[in-house]
């Protein structure tokens, strides 16, 4: 079974090809260039390197958010179009779970987060135990300060990990104190191969209706809802 995995949720872009649980190739880059330009050539490249044709693919796994709206749509559009046209299953995995999975062989709480501007984050809380991840708090869009108060209630050490640039370090130490541990560098970046390990046995999604998990309404909708609530 040849599995293609794709993540374009944030600035890093990662694609991988696995044969069952064996990695064949993984290609990750972290540049300011456009995923729309780079994704398709990157998939083309990794497939040629290991001599696999599109028709030889048997499953697609994509990180479907949260993250950058545009980035997510590029990855998800590519994944769903490919799965649909090749008539193979599509599996989606949380972009936050993907980052947390770098620490899957540790033990304890892992908070992965992406900066969502103006003091907000996209974040989720996972627990690593015996090579497995379980969700402790669901992925959400929340003010970092409020989130950290909730994490504090756990009273346990928490490993913080984020592939995005942010300015929350001081706030984390203020609220969580010494219980906060940081993972930076290589292990804070998404690696598409982890998508295969997380998603290979998961239930496929309905390809046509699949779209990213934005975890946030469109601004115009929020304003419209507010206005209409007032008018009632």
């Amino acid at each position: 079974m040849n599995i293609l995995a794709i993540d374009t949720s944030n600035r890093p872009m990662s694609v991988a090809l696995y044969h069952n649980e064996t990695p064949l190739i993984e290609h990750t880059l972290n540049s300011k260039r456009n995923h729309s330009v780079q994704l398709m050539p990157a998939i083309d490249y990794i497939m040629k390197e290991v001599n696999i044709q599109p028709k030889d693919l048997s499953k697609i796994i994509v990180a479907n958010g949260p993250g950058s709206y545009t980035g997510l749509r590029i990855g998800v559009t590519t994944a769903k179009t490919l799965a649909w046209t090749l008539n193979i299953p599509l599996v989606t995995v949380s972009s936050l779970e993907l980052v947390a999975a770098n620490l899957i062989y540790s033990s304890g709480l892992i908070c992965s987060f992406f900066d969502a501007r103006r003091g907000n984050v996209f974040t989720g809380l996972y627990r690593a135990q015996e090579g497995r991840l379980t969700e402790e708090l669901p992925d959400q869009n929340i003010a970092m300060e409020e989130w950290l108060d909730r994490l504090n209630d756990f009273g346990e050490p928490i490993t913080m990990v984020s592939p995005t640039e942010h300015t929350f370090s001081d706030m984390v130490y203020e609220i969580l104190g010494k219980r906060a541990k940081w993972v930076t560098g290589h292990l804070s970046f998404p690696q598409a191969g982890q998508l295969v390990l997380l998603g290979k046995d998961r239930e496929p999604v309905d390809i046509h209706t699949t779209s990213p998990q934005y975890h946030r309404l469109v601004e115009a909708e929020v304003k419209w809802l507010e206005k209409n609530a007032q008018n009632k």
Binding site: M40, D44, P54, R73, I74, T77, T78
Partner: peptide, 19 residues
């Protein structure tokens, strides 16, 4: 731009998948 990207990426994927 965000709207165009959906069509462009779907088209590229089909061109790639079927050569």
């Amino acid at each position: 731009v965000g709207a165009l990207l959906i069509g462009v990426n779907a088209a590229k994927t089909l061109a790639f998948a079927h050569q």
